[in-house]
Design a protein around this nucleic acid. Structure first.
Lengths: 169, 169
DNA sequence: ATTGATGCAAAGGCTTTGCATTGCT
DNA sequence: AGCAATGCAAAGCCTTTGCATCAAT
């Protein structure tokens, strides 16, 4: 019926940076009369050394595993700054805040598997257009959006349907 | 340049219920061997007596204002049940959970004004289609989605731009 | 000197849970 | 009796804040 298999979510390729994230952060801070201190530099670098989604706790744990130590308070304070600087974007898949890169990475949206919790990314050209048309039609000035498709990822969907048959044996 | 004014977000018309929400909840509970008790009935009725978005605290306050009293614990427990029963849908615009009707109301999405906090609803035919195409292309089985456009509502956008000019005086 | 950043610990806000009590069947 | 639902208070999470200390101009 359906073709045997389609490629599932090839990871998105990172874009080139115009500036290193660290520099972008420094500029942002400078404008506000604040400084790129050692803990802040450590955090930006660490966060930009990989592309995964993370929350505050995971970040703190990762840092410790890497032999670094920044206080909870500073981590939370810096995360807020990074969001304001448009280096990070907040995801609200659950009631805890998760973060992802918002710089040097193509704009994209998410599929959230409610069975295994996996988060997949995708890009779609039409969506932004649709968003802007909808907003305009309502006198709304769109600056961003979040689009999250919920359901089951291929693996969980496959694991579930056959199981029903086995259960009957 | 632009037409003097366009209708902004006419409220969505409620649909007809196939069943009263209360009945739908009762069935859901029956299947799980649980009961539609007095506090639960009170909650469903109250929640379905208006169409607004609310969070747990607002619900409790509203109930008290109406002379009813249900404990926090029961409110939280019942909200969870109502979500499982597909009578309510969770919105995660901030780090506290807000709820809206997921029954007897057309499926829709949201615009969130980050200036005044207003939440506007809209419907768009294309979106669901787009969602299903994207999901299919990634081997994902979509069961739902959340689409939130962020930016400024007409009122806030208008209030902001002219202010810049006034500031210069 | 002055201003901001950090870390610690404490407080806050939202949500869940343990447990005794109550209510139904 | 037996099983579930309630209410209360306490605990749990995640996050923010007050304050003393430290760093950098």
């Amino acid at each position: 019926m359906s073709p045997p298999s389609a490629a599932e979510s090839p990871p998105l390729a990172p874009l080139q940076f115009d500036q290193r994230p660290e520099e972008k952060f420094r500029e942002f801070l400078e404008i506000r009369g604040e400084k790129l201190t050692e803990p802040r530099r450590l955090l930006v670098r660490h966060i930009y050394s990989s592309h995964k989604h993370f929350d505050a706790d995971e970040l703190i744990a990762d840092l410790q595993a890497a032999g670094h130590r920044v206080s909870r308070a500073t981590v939370y304070r810096t995360l807020r700054l990074l969001v304001e600087a448009h280096l990070l974007r907040e995801l609200r898949l659950t009631n805890r805040t998760a973060y992802e890169h918002d710089y040097g990475y193509p704009s994209h949206d998410h599929m959230h598997c409610t069975t295994c919790g996996a988060v997949l990314e995708f890009t779609n050209e039409e969506l932004r257009n649709l968003r802007d048309r909808v907003a305009a039609a309502h006198g709304f000035r769109a600056t961003g959006h979040r689009f999250i498709i919920t359901g089951q990822c291929g693996t969980c969907a496959r694991a579930r349907s056959p199981r029903r048959r086995l259960d009957r044996i």
